[in-house]
């Protein structure tokens, strides 16, 4: 099956096509802004490079966050619009999980803790084990609560919050990679594995964003 993967959840825009266990074309461009302009032409360019018709795609993978709210929505709206038209499932994957896999650290068996700086004294964190069953769900927590939440050692820290987390977690928690951007080609591999494990029926309903943070809005005082 042909799988198309998109990521716009952080400071890069990437698209990959995956078939029979390997990427057949992928584009990756670091960018702080401009994802809304770049994404769909990049999808077309990747399809043209691979010589495939976009309508022939059998599944779409997308990062659902946590990340920038706008970036997450750009990826999800595009993925869901494509899927609606093509009539195929959408597989949503945690951005933190893609970051862990993008760091290419699988040879070391120690668990990975992906930590992304969420500002305001908070951090997005997800523990990635050797198998999906050993991984936790992504969550948002106060930096001050990190040590209590993740007592196990050793831990390899990956992500923009790695240095911050290393300070809090102390001995046994080492920085493996501080600045890792998610890559669609890596996302494609994770999604393909998930699709193989669960079948398409599991992905009948499209994924929704994983913001982990409520909108900034105050109710008027009575």
């Amino acid at each position: 099956m042909l799988l198309l993967a998109l990521d716009t959840s952080l400071a890069a825009c990437s698209v990959a096509l995956w078939r029979d266990g390997a990427p057949i074309a992928d584009h990756f461009v670091p960018m702080a802004r401009g994802h809304a302009e770049a994404l769909v032409p990049m999808v077309q360019a990747v399809c043209a490079q691979a010589g495939v018709d976009l309508a022939a795609v059998g599944a779409i993978a997308v990062t659902r966050g946590p990340g920038t709210f706008t970036g997450i929505r750009i990826g999800l709206a595009t993925a869901r619009g494509l899927a609606l038209t093509i009539g195929c499932p959408v597989i949503g994957v945690s951005t933190l999980e893609v970051i862990a896999a993008s760091a290419l650290l699988r040879t070391d068996p120690a668990p990975i803790l992906v930590v992304q700086d969420a500002r305001r004294g908070e951090i997005y964190a997800q523990r990635i084990g050797a198998t999906p069953e050993e991984s936790t769900a992504p969550r948002l927590l106060a930096v001050a609560d990190l040590a209590a939440a993740f007592p196990e050692r050793p831990l390899r820290l990956v992500g923009s919050g790695a240095l911050l987390a290393a300070e809090r977690l102390g001995a046994g928690a080492t920085v493996a990679a501080a600045e890792v951007l998610p890559q669609a080609a890596v996302l494609a591999g994770l999604a393909a594995a998930r699709l193989q494990r669960h079948g398409t029926a599991r992905f009948a309903a499209p994924p929704s964003p994983l913001y982990l943070r409520a909108p900034d809005a105050k109710l008027p005082s009575a």
């Binding site: 769909v40 309508a55 709210f69 929505r73 709206a77 595009t78 494509l82 038209t85």
Partner: peptide, 18 residues
């Protein structure tokens, strides 16, 4: 934020239906 959702969805449908 809302404009982007409609714009991206529209572009995706246009691309996928050629």
């Amino acid at each position: 934020g809302g404009v982007m959702v409609g714009l991206m969805t529209g572009k995706a449908i246009a691309a996928a239906s050629d």
